[in-house]
Design a protein around this nucleic acid. Structure first.
Lengths: 158, 158
DNA sequence: TGTTCGTTCGCAAGTCGTGCAGATTGACAT
DNA sequence: ATGTCAATCTGCACGACTTGCGAACGAACA
């Protein structure tokens, strides 16, 4: 999503008001890479602005998503998560702690898909599930050393 | 998932009881390709067995999923859907009516993925969203003829 | 037929998200 | 600076979905 300053500009030119609540949320979401839930963001916001309503957080996030400034994600973790990264990317979620990270899959477009007969596809998302490095520590009974490949940032699709 | 007869066998040898409720659900799910929600299945079941509890439907579906006889899917449509097809496949869901179909993507394994650093991936799922042929009729303003490719059953990933 | 323990059922409760309405306040004109 | 108007905020209630709990039930086996 764009910077708080740009969003402020954009909101005003669109007849939307720039309230302190919105400014706070602009700041909290801008370049936020932890994919927070509305509730998590509400907690952060409350620390800086006691009295802010969870309802307002939901409202603002929904508005930002509708404006294309952020993406709302349903990763099967119960609550919707919000992602200011609007690039073409996908996600990996930790089964244990629920942590989410952005991943980039190249070459996905163009794969042959069977069974779409007649469906007009508008969106395709890839979701990886697994165990994050932090949660794997001391819990991976399979290998006493490591199951991590030599190049940890470049793997193959399951 | 396996046939009702096989499941009956399997349940009994595992010390689980084969109740009329379970038998009915075995039948309703076997080779069911419409990815029903618990509630939808409850409606079907109630027609044949008035008095069956929604709680029992949830329970049995959860058990079957835990046994690997079916997959529970969170496709972002609100309620969990259950799929007796345990093959390696993915899904496409209609934004308008919520219909779900199985799709098969070849060549997805092996795609380079960037950003997985350290994550131990256990599962990767691809979800397509769009408009099904039935819902598209009379609603597709983009082209008066058709946007459907010549080979409707074989398309490319978005 | 009797015993046992897994199952079923109904309800309460929990989580997540939205509708509603009155009070508030940002934005702009005077 | 002040007034006006509409957008916004807040709190609460509600709806959808799912699970926890405990008493009653019944499938499996001796």
């Amino acid at each position: 999503m764009r910077s708080p300053a740009e969003l402020t500009e954009s909101f005003r030119t669109n007849g939307l008001k720039v309230t302190p609540q919105r400014q706070l949320l602009f700041r909290l979401m801008h370049e936020n890479d932890c994919h927070p839930t509305a509730d998590a963001l509400f907690a952060e916001a409350s620390a800086q602005m006691p009295g802010i309503s969870l309802r307002t957080v939901y409202q603002t996030l929904t508005d930002l998503a509708a404006m294309g400034e952020l993406r709302s994600l349903d990763l099967g973790t119960g609550a919707t998560r919000f992602d200011p990264n609007t690039d073409d990317h996908h996600h990996v979620v930790c089964d244990r702690c629920g942590d989410v990270r952005d991943v980039y899959v190249s070459g996905a477009d163009g794969l042959p898909v069977d069974g779409l007969d007649g469906f007009e596809v508008r969106e395709a998302s890839i979701l990886f599930k697994g165990v994050c490095p932090r949660c794997a520590v001391g819990h991976d009974m399979a290998s006493p050393t490591s199951t991590t490949p030599n190049n940890p940032a470049k793997e193959k699709l399951s």
